[in-house]
Nucleic acid binder design. Structure first.
Length: 365
DNA sequence: AGTATTCTGGAGGGAGGTGA
DNA sequence: TCACCTCCCTCCAGAATACT
């Protein structure tokens, strides 16, 4: 996140397209930004190798590349064969290029691999043509892509445009149409989140979409479900929104056989049995229960996963046990657990329980 | 009024813990 | 030692909410 992260230098040194020394007239300080990818050819070869070794296949190049970079043993990373494409400059000391395209040419001169598909386009028409052309050529490329990045070329204009909190205003992604697939909705379940929001969740017949097995998809809320007109038992088109989140696009009404039935929002929370209300002006239905285990677990999970508390090995499973046994309803209560409960936790044995006990003892100090 | 941020959902895969 | 399990992290759309 800019402050905390993983040390992957040793792994990156195994990537051949990252030069270990720069060539030509290089600046005194250079931060090369880019992307690590696994070429389709290398992905296929890797899976063949794993096949020979009797190991499971990798599902897709993107996750295989992400996992390879995180390896603790760089020998494994070296074997995976990754490729690095440089696409921009970060910190820099020296004669700064005046445009994005010059910056990329500079990176190439210094010995970095840069994309040969990049192109300068004058005007939005040329940009649109380029994107359309790339979408056509998508299947023939040596790596998977899901779109194009369009950048303002002149650095002075980039500086005038500035940045938003997480992304610059001078660059935008154009995403291709997502890959779609057909499957059937087995059931729609009401799922209770940490805020009590009850979300209709489609349980699907598992189907492959863009290198991933999809078996569940959120329908967000009742309005969204009604707008799409989805029934339990429907054949539906699904897609991965921008290649990540599974989404139900639309039902195929012509495939209905009359056995489909609508999802009805329960009037009692499926987890705690409390009433379900739809607050005025809101889209979501909510569980009214103050002690709803689903909400408590959700809140505690969220709290822990955001590392608000620095307890090593503090397990979600342990939280669930504490909530299920009725011993804990919020974070503060964890620190007020009585001696008998702590003792029984310690007897449970798992390291996470002992870590928790230790953390609580420390907090009392 | 318009823009930014936060929250929520699911899947894949690595790391590390657990138990036989 | 090995198989299995849990957890974490990442991605982004849509809704709600916060901020300018």
């Amino acid at each position: 996140d800019g402050m905390v992260g993983e040390e992957i230098t040793a792994n990156l040194r195994t990537i051949r397209s990252i030069p270990l020394s720069l060539s030509g007239d290089f600046p005194s300080l250079l931060e090369a930004r880019g992307e690590v990818v696994m070429l389709l050819e290398d992905f296929q070869r890797l899976n063949e190798l794993y096949e020979e070794r009797g190991l499971p296949h990798f599902a897709n190049p993107r996750n295989a590349a992400a996992g390879s970079v995180r390896q603790l043993d760089s020998k494994i990373t070296a074997e995976r064969k990754l490729t690095f494409f440089a696409y921009g400059l970060g910190r820099f000391e020296g004669a700064l290029p005046s445009s994005q395209s010059e910056a990329i040419s500079l990176l190439a001169d210094l010995g970095f691999l840069v994309s040969s598909l990049r192109q300068k386009a004058l005007g939005i028409g040329a940009v649109a043509d380029y994107c359309a052309d790339m979408e056509k050529r998508r299947e023939t490329l040596p790596f998977e892509i899901d779109g194009c990045v369009i950048k303002v070329d002149e650095i002075s204009l980039q500086e005038r445009l500035g940045e938003k909190s997480r992304s610059p205003r001078w660059a935008v992604a154009y995403k291709f149409k997502p890959v779609q697939a057909l499957t059937r909705i087995r059931d729609i379940l009401p799922s209770v989140g940490r805020t009590g929001a009850i979300t209709p969740l489609a349980v699907l017949d598992a189907v492959q979409v863009g290198g991933v097995t999809v078996s569940r998809a959120t329908l967000h809320n009742m309005d969204e479900l009604m707008r799409k007109g989805v029934l339990i038992g429907d054949w539906v088109v699904i897609q991965r929104a921008v290649d990540v989140i599974p989404e139900v696009v639309a039902p195929l009404a012509e495939r209905r056989d009359g056995l489909e039935r609508p999802f009805i929002m329960p009037d009692r929370c499926p987890v705690c049995g409390s009433g379900v209300i739809k607050p005025e002006g809101e889209v979501v239905y909510r569980c009214e229960g103050l002690d709803c285990p689903a909400q408590i677990k959700g809140r505690l999970k969220n709290f822990v996963s955001r590392r608000a508390m620095d307890i090593d090995g503090f397990g979600i499973k342990l939280i669930e046990q504490l909530v299920d046994s009725g011993k804990v309803r919020d974070m503060a209560e964890i620190f007020r657990l009585d001696a008998a409960t702590l003792a029984s936790l310690e007897r449970m044995g798992p390291k996470s329980a002992q870590n928790l006990v230790e953390a609580i003892e420390k907090s009392k100090g």
